[in-house]
Design a protein around this nucleic acid. Structure first.
Lengths: 331, 331
DNA sequence: CTCCACTGGTTTACCGGTAACGTAGGCAGA
DNA sequence: TCTGCCTACGTTACCGGTAAACCAGTGGAG
């Protein structure tokens, strides 16, 4: 970690500027000089100092910050994967943080990350504190908001409409003959996007003349077990339901487990619908009715849009990557 | 993003050194000066430049790099979560990367990250290329290797023994009366740790006098569907098996789905065992026999050990966080 | 009355790169 | 022969912080 450009320059008998040029692959040196410098850099175990490079020249650093609601979410794992692969390929580094569905935590995180002068940010969700928006606008950093579409993105947005997801599922349930429909959510008051899907669902059912009959929104994280005991709670309150839409697939699978345990037949006695399109949904004895979300594609698109913008390309403000309702066999 | 210490200093009528001290909460200024400086910093929308700080003073940066095999793994999501929460609390930033089970990709990633002069690294796994090890030793960076225990860690190690996991599961299967046991793996030749578990399993079964009868190691990622069709392949080749141990819970659940599909009763006709302890395992109609891994705890411990080491504390070289075999009802 | 320590600062140097600009030598074309 | 341009460098300045050294005034001890 000791060797610097200076050290290489001294040994090679050139100026450190020449070394810098060689190592960056710029021009302005002979083949002979290049070979000598590279050889010496190798021998000295030179490790470039990006801190100095990014700091000294105000040139774009290769740091990209990304903030997700939770790191334990299967869906966001795939988004992260898409981002990571694209960024790695393009030579960028990923700084990551979770906001636990809290705008205040997001703001704190962004404040930290911005102080590292990243090349850009990827945020999930469209809702931010006013201070966050001010900070981002002031910093003039490229920002991609993913996962949900903002009416007016801070900079760029890539995703889909959660309200539309809800509407689509509502219409599907009605088409399949369901009339007494309930909803089981999670992360009460913290998750804006789940709320948007619920809103879409309500809207569609209302319009069809069969308004949502029961809603239960748990405070827990949307996992298997929450779906399991949440469905029990919901059905205790509203035993007449003939279908339940869940916050996500994990919860829906938990719900299926509860149905199996107490002898409720799916879809005959009750319909079960998830959201997200996790892999497990497709190998259940009956394929889960769900909405497939283009997770990896969103991550990849976000990373690529960010980098393209850095390189001055003209990117559309909003990119829609559509979701797809998978009918399945549980409704 | 414009304001610097200099700007604040000019407005406040003090030197930038004084501003620096105020903002860092060091000493050597009056209350009056402090209030004025803080007020002006606020007004100017000052955002500290950690790039400059970390670069200028060779003081520890607050960057921690972490490399995981895959970002889509449910288990590693929890590890990441543990790391992230601890680091956030301690005021550090997380840089992340996936190596896709490739030592070469890991080396490339580490090379990139080290050039950002991080405070330390968290790596998963004990196997690295020789060049990686050289680089890490040379850089004298604190390194925590998690998830598996190294006989001789580069610096610190926190985790458990995969071989022991395999042994324990083998003994459990034998105790439950299973005699003709098979194994279904994934990520052939890429996943060292799955191989270690298989090795432990083989060893225990051998010792019990009922050696492993069939092994199938898929090339795919260890997901639900791989378990589903993989079990079909395995049983086609070795129909007499009375139990199958899987690479992980996702695959085991996929295997369960296949059993259900073709009318095999679990555990009567065949025993199914997973590994990892994912939440879904506990809400299945029959609880899955599996091994629970302290994912979040490992992440938390790794982050805390790293920071403690940075602060000069004396940390034991190897920390074992034990796994726990959950008997379940599928064997 | 002198000396000293303490408070509340200032000044200077430096971290390791990169941009911008300067320059020596060689060669081609007018 | 002179001009202009190209190649292959070298020099200088600077990015925004922090450490370290230095300094002026003040109050108290001796």
């Amino acid at each position: 970690m000791k060797a610097s450009l200076e050290d290489i320059a001294r040994v090679a008998g050139v100026s450190k500027m020449t070394v810098s040029r060689v190592l960056r692959g710029a021009s302005g040196f002979s083949d002979e000089t290049r070979d000598r410098v590279l050889q010496i850099a190798q021998n000295l175990g030179y490790v470039p100092n990006r801190l100095a490079a990014a700091f000294g020249a105000d040139q774009a650093s290769t740091l990209v910050g990304m903030c997700v609601p939770r790191l334990t979410s299967g869906l966001f794992g795939h988004v992260l994967d898409g981002v990571d692969r694209a960024l790695t390929r393009l030579g960028f580094q990923l700084m990551i943080g979770a906001n636990n569905h809290s705008l205040a935590e997001e703001e704190a995180w962004i404040r930290q990350v911005v102080s590292w002068r990243p090349a850009g940010l990827i945020l999930s969700g469209r809702t931010h504190t006013p201070a966050t928006v001010d900070l981002l606008r002031l910093s003039a950093l490229p920002v991609v908001e993913i996962w949900d579409l903002t009416t007016r993105p801070i900079d760029l947005a890539i995703g889909f409409s959660h309200v539309d997801c809800g509407v689509e599922m509502g219409q599907h349930l009605i088409r399949r003959g369901r009339r007494r429909i309930g909803y089981l959510g999670a992360l009460a008051r913290a998750d804006v996007m789940g709320a948007a899907r619920l809103q879409g669902l309500q809207q569609a059912l209302q319009q069809a003349g069969h308004p949502l009959e029961a809603v239960e929104i748990l405070h827990d994280a949307p996992g298997f077990y929450a779906g399991y005991y949440g469905l029990e709670m919901l059905l205790a309150r509203a035993p007449e339901l003939d279908a339940v839409a869940f916050h996500n697939d994990e919860m829906a699978i938990g719900g299926l487990a509860w149905c199996q345990k107490c002898g409720l037949r799916v879809p005959e006695d009750i319909g079960i619908a998830g959201w997200g399109g996790m892999e497990a949904a497709s190998i259940l004895p009956r394929r889960l009715t769900t909405t497939q979300v283009p997770t990896t594609a969103i991550g990849k698109a976000a990373a690529e849009a960010l980098v393209a913008r850095l390189q001055g390309a003209n990117i559309p403000e909003v990119t829609v990557l559509p979701t797809r309702l998978i009918p399945g066999e549980t409704v």
